[in-house]
Each structure stands twice: as C-alpha cells, then as structure tokens.
C-alpha cells in the first residue's frame, strides 16, 4: 500500500540551517548535508529545504547546498524559495533537487507553473500555498484579485498570501489550488498561516477542502506539535503527506516516534530501520 509520507522541513539561510537543531548529536548542526543525512537515517520519507535567504546575492549558495546534499542523501529532495523563472527552476533541478516548490512566483506568474511542468514534468513542480482564514474585515480590505475567477466570494473561507505571508492577494485558496493543479502542478504544499508556529495542530478544514478538490497529492504544513496532529492531518485532512519542522528540530519527537504512532493507528507507513 502507498504509505503516507513524513517530511521534515529545514529552513536554510545563506547556506546554514536555522532554527533549533542543537539537540542533534552531530558535529555541525547547521550543516544542511549533515542534517539531511540525520533525517534520512531517522526514516524521513522526503526532505524539504526552504531557502529563506534575504539577499539575492546569496542565492547561489543554495545551489551548492543542494549539490552537496544530493551527493549524500538518496531520498527525494524538494527545494523552495526565491525561484522566479524556468531558468531558476532548471538550475535547482540540475543541482540535484527532485522537485522545486513555487509560491509567490506562481501567484504572480501562473504561466511559470505551466512552463516548468511542461519542461520538467509535473512531478518536479510543487506549488506551495500560504493561506489564512477569511475574516469579516477581509470583505472590505482584501485586494481585488486580478483574475476574477479566483477572487474571494461569500463562500470563500481562506485567502492566499504571498511574500512569506506578508501580502494578501484577494484570491480564494481552494480555487487557487484547483487552478494550479490544472496548470500542471504535481503536488500541493498547503500551509495554514493561522496554525503555523502554534504547535496546536494543522488547520484540518483547509486541508480537507483542498485535498478533496484536487486529484494530485497534497502535503499538510503548519502547526504540528505532536504525533496526533500528523495523524489528524491524514485521517481528517485527507492529505497524502505531512510536513513538519519544530516537532522534529527541537527533538521533541523523532521521525520514528511519529511513524510508530501513526502506524499504531492503522496508517500505512514506511518502516524505519
């Protein structure tokens, strides 16, 4: 049976992994390759590297990071952050990434999703969606979507944000998810900004709404604090994979802990060694 994937996410700033990773008993806990190997051995099914480098001058560093990691770790690697063109995507895939994750660039230029999936295959193109629950004020303050068919309406429950969650776009997140799947995305990474960082669980409603709206795999992101949250994302949110950061980086739970828990609840998991 196809297993549900557990995906640790690492934030990389100018070539160094940031966030609390000090628990890990390796010589250099900021070294992306060392951490990738660590999670691989722990039984991670895939890895996501998010390039949060602010300076565009330092963007090339990520290329080298990906080269190094892909020589040592032989599980799928997705890289997101800062890619705006087919050429950017190509450079990252050539460096050794298996998939790239497009977020802001996909919203501002949906044609990028079409072109990249035609060039490299849908399997290589993940579209990341940052979404937030629509509030009463949004009805008057949200910007008008340039594409009316995607705009917020009375039934909209979540709005798409870009620029790392700073800019609301007036776009309905579920409509956007369905659209990018049509444009050629091979997978969706859905982050709820309402739950992200709170460790209180994923927003199961948006996961379910999007997962049932598309036929491509959906990855849940934002809010995992304990193994039960990951189980809920799969069982209630209907997702195919779960991404988590803090829960693993702080050493609260290992990948094996999470997999054992989910397997004990009858979910198909790839066993850890």
């Amino acid at each position: 049976m196809l297993t549900k994937r557990i995906i640790p996410c690492l934030d990389v700033d100018a070539g160094r992994v940031v966030k609390g990773v000090s628990f890990i008993d390796i010589r250099d806990a900021g070294d992306p390759a060392a951490l990738a190997s660590f999670y691989d051995k722990e039984g991670a099914d895939e890895l996501v590297f998010l390039d949060i480098t602010a300076s565009s001058d330092d963007r090339n560093i990520m290329i080298n990071v990906v080269k190094q990691v892909s020589e040592q770790v032989f599980i799928p690697l997705t890289v997101g952050g800062g890619m705006r063109s087919v050429a950017d995507v190509k450079r990252m895939l050539d460096a050794g990434a298996d998939k790239v994750s497009l977020n802001t660039a996909a919203v501002l230029n949906p044609e990028l999703v079409v072109e990249s999936s035609e060039h490299f295959g849908s399997q290589a193109i993940v579209v990341a969606i940052d979404a937030k629950r629509v509030t009463v004020e949004d009805a008057s303050t949200a910007p008008k979507s340039s594409d009316q068919s995607l705009g917020l309406d009375e039934s909209s429950r979540w709005q798409v944000y870009i620029h790392g969650g700073r800019t609301p776009m007036g776009i309905d997140a579920v409509k956007w998810a369905i659209r990018v799947a049509e444009l050629g995305a091979g997978e969706l990474l859905v982050t709820s900004m309402d739950t992200d960082g709170h460790l209180t669980g994923y927003d199961l409603d948006i996961l379910k709404a999007i997962s049932e709206g598309v036929t491509i795999p959906v990855i849940a992101s934002g809010g995992a604090g304990e193994p039960e949250h990951l189980r809920q994302a799969v069982e209630t949110g209907k997702v195919d994979a779960v991404l988590a950061a803090s829960i693993f980086h702080f050493g609260t739970y290992s990948v094996k802990d999470v997999k054992d828990y989910m397997a004990s609840h009858g979910l198909p998991m790839r066993p850890t060694d």
Binding site: L2, D45, S122, E187, I216, D240
Partner: peptide, 11 residues
C-alpha cells in the same frame, strides 16, 4: 479513483 501521479513509497 486514487491520486495521480502515484507518488511516494509503496511496497
């Protein structure tokens, strides 16, 4: 009837 592509770890 299932997600396409078949993506992930299977037996």
């Amino acid at each position: 009837g299932q997600k396409i592509p078949h993506m992930g770890w299977n037996q």
